[in-house]
Design a protein around this nucleic acid. Structure first.
Lengths: 347, 347
DNA sequence: ATTCATGTTGCATCCGAAGTCAAAACTGGC
DNA sequence: GCCAGTTTTGACTTCGGATGCAACATGAAT
């Protein structure tokens, strides 16, 4: 009785029960298990008509190679971890959708992790390791030692809109500084004098970059802006506008919000609470170019991140680093597109 | 030489390289591989101080059990497939965030699939099978034969805001009919006479339910509404309002949009194109209760789906069915919450 | 017909953890 | 100190597919 490892009779009795294995297919096709394995590996040494015979048997049994068995032996899992800090942000769903589809297109599956707070990262890493992912795309703030853990394990990662500090890490980001500079150049050219900034939380990398850039360019024009710190959400925008108006004694020419959600909050607040006409009485700009920014109720003046290109780049870079480990981490910075909108007067 | 299967010297030389196995830990701790395995399985027969010794060795090597090896032998992968048709919808990111976090909390990982179009489902199923997921949560429209494939393979699924037709399937949904009835009851009580409906695409299950319910309740009051079919997005809402105004000869009392995004589009269009005051000159209602619905610029009158409770229920039901296969599929219908908002006059 | 190159095939082994089972190490009672 | 009863332990096998290697088939060249 040389045949072994044949799965039990299918419980349901129907064709293609859950557990057809390569041995089952081999038996039905009258070949060895190795042949079945080869039939499913493109480029393997197998006669076309044998493959065809095997494929026919496989289809009949509803056989699909077990990714766990395959991953165990090949050490390639075709899994990519995607870590996104807060999904309820308006911006990330778009990124996630792009990443998921592009990763699928190149044969990888997405293992999704979302964080309720950045402090959960270490805990989450412990959940990633067992799955031996081939790589990771991370849109959350990793500390150097966390990046190092990936490097030590030889798992390539791409940071999305973040960059490593001491530890080398490949990254894809939108040029926040340049985008902010464009906006400010326009606002200054249009003659705005009294500026307010609605910034994000201090632990946001892009938020700080945008804030920093805004301050620098305003300072170059001899302007000291009022500042409010929010949480990147709509309510922070409303609250921020109120706070800034207070600080500025009601006289504010322009408000720079470091993302669109806050800009929209500021716009609604300016209209409803202060009865200001936008952009005639006050200019408000955002950053990101999320969907609602182009809604006719807002028509936000903002910088649109080239999400599709960025996602494509992240996936390409990751695959490249998976195929060819040990490459020097590359950093790609994308320029955003200025959406003129109608929420600000630009010169 | 009885010791075998020890991994090579760690390439990086650092502690905790990528490939520590249970054999490595066993050697370092001076025990057998079986002991290591037991140390990581709660409830296994192992002396507390042996476990401690092993855990220390494991930590030193950065060892984490290989989920692929474990999954292969236990036939439990701790993976749950989550399928979401279009992520760029405002509603689903919230659902996804909830699902991901709750699944994590019960020890499951999310394998995410997103669809560019519903026609890709068959293709996507082929990508799911190899991973032998323990279960699936599906917010996309499955045909009966697709549901059957899950049933045949013994993979429990929960349909989210969808229900099976002929084929039995567990599901979690928000009661669209009841929610719509509430809205219409209110609108009728406030004396609205001329109604328009901005519906979603015909292949949306919830969309059709809401439309159907709206028509029925209006018919009961002897009202025949104008109808426009959109695509569930903001632009459809704008376009829809325009189309309805045209149909109604500019005289429209109330507009029922079958989701919030379209309702917001309709509101903006009513204000900017027709210069109508909301809700004084026209009432507009939505459905879902997405984030922007409560923004002060909209304050949408809508039905909020209890997303958190629904996600929790979906996860609970799924886990239950994973632990105890063969249960009769249960269907849970949740009532929504009426958010009065300020976009409609309700009686 | 013989030889050699090329293309296919099957056998045996491996990946890494989990579980079975029998042997070994404790435990307490006398 | 000995014995029965209970933990605890390690050797061995298993999950399902991939792959090196040797055996085999095929066809062309001699």
């Amino acid at each position: 009785m040389p045949k072994k490892k044949l799965s039990e009779a299918v419980p349901g009795g129907g064709p293609g029960g859950s557990g057809a294995t390569s041995y089952d297919v081999a038996e039905l096709a009258g070949v060895s298990q190795s042949a079945v394995s080869r039939a499913f590996r493109k480029g393997a040494s197998i006669a076309p008509k044998t493959r065809e015979k095997i494929m026919r048997a496989a289809k009949q049994l509803g056989y699909q190679p077990n990714a766990f068995a395959r991953g165990l032996i090949t050490r390639r899992t075709n899994l990519v971890a995607v870590v996104i800090s807060n999904l309820t942000n308006l911006y990330y769903p778009e990124v996630l959708a792009e990443l998921t589809q592009r990763l699928s297109a190149v044969g990888h599956r997405v293992l999704l992790f979302s964080l309720a707070s950045e402090s959960e990262i270490d805990e989450m890493l412990g959940l990633i390791w067992p799955y031996r992912v081939d790589g990771a795309i991370i849109a959350a703030r990793l500390k150097d030692d966390q990046i190092r853990q990936f490097n030590d394990r030889g798992i390539p990662i791409i940071l999305y809109n973040r960059v490593g500090e001491a530890e080398p890490a490949a990254s894809v980001a939108c040029d926040s500084a340049a985008g902010t500079r464009e906006l400010i150049k326009g606002l200054l050219a249009a003659g705005h004098q009294r500026f307010g900034i609605i910034a994000g939380p201090e632990d946001s990398y892009v938020g700080e970059e945008r804030l920093e850039s805004a301050r620098r360019h305003l300072a170059a024009a001899g302007i000291e802006p009022f500042l409010y710190r929010g949480g990147f959400d709509y309510r922070s925008g409303e609250e921020g506008l109120r706070a800034l108006m207070e600080q500025a004694g009601g006289k504010l020419d322009a408000v720079i919000a470091t993302n669109d959600a806050m800009a929209m909050g500021a716009i609604d607040c300016a209209r409803s609470t202060y009865d200001l006409a936008i952009p005639d009485q006050i200019s408000i700009v955002g950053f990101d170019g999320v969907g609602p920014a182009t809604w006719s109720g807002y028509q936000l003046t903002t910088i649109r991140q080239p999400v599709r290109r960025m996602a494509q780049a992240a996936v390409d870079m990751l695959i490249e680093r998976i195929e060819q480990p040990g490459m020097i981490p590359e950093q790609r910075l994308f320029g955003g597109e200025l959406l003129p909108g109608r929420s600000a007067r630009l010169g």
